[in-house]
C-alpha cells in the first residue's frame, strides 16, 4: 500500500461562508496534479453522519490523511473517536488544515507546505 498521503477537502456543504471565495476544483486539481498524493477528493461534510461513514468505510490504519477544512481543533474533536473505532489513530494519521477564508492559491500553498 502506498505511503503517499491522501488529501480530503471537507467543503462544509459548499454553503458555508468560509469557503465561498475558494475555487474548489482549482485546489483539488492542483493538489492531484502537482503534489505527490495518492488521491485528492472532496467530501461535502465530514462532521456529520455520512462523514463518519466515510471514515468507517475508507480509513486504513497506517495511511496518512490531510484534511482541508475548518478549525483543526474542531476537526480533531469531530473525527478522533470515529477513526479510533476503525482501528486508526487520529494524531498519527491525520493532518488537519484550516483552509477557510482564502483563495485556492493560498490553500494550495498550505497543502504543499505539509506535503513537500
Amino acid at each position: 500500500m502506498s505511503d503517499k498521503p491522501r488529501f480530503v477537502m471537507c467543503y462544509c456543504t459548499g454553503e458555508c461562508p468560509g469557503f465561498q471565495g475558494m475555487n474548489l476544483w482549482q485546489l483539488i486539481n492542483r493538489v492531484r496534479n502537482e503534489l505527490d498524493v495518492e488521491y485528492a477528493i472532496v467530501h461535502p461534510q465530514l462532521c456529520v453522519d455520512d462523514g463518519d461513514r466515510f471514515w468507517r468505510d475508507n480509513l486504513k490504519p497506517g495511511n496518512r490523511y490531510i484534511v482541508g477544512g475548518c478549525d483543526p481543533r474542531m476537526q480533531r474533536k469531530m473525527f478522533k473517536d470515529t477513526i479510533a473505532d476503525v482501528g486508526g489513530n487520529y494524531d498519527d494519521q491525520v493532518i488537519a488544515l484550516d483552509l477557510r477564508n482564502m483563495p485556492a492559491e493560498e490553500a494550495f500553498a498550505k497543502v504543499a507546505e505539509v506535503i513537500r
Partner: peptide, 10 residues
C-alpha cells in the same frame, strides 16, 4: 445549513 449539525457534534 440543512443537514449540518456540526455544532451538536462538538
Amino acid at each position: 445549513v440543512i443537514g449540518c449539525s456540526a455544532c451538536a457534534k462538538i
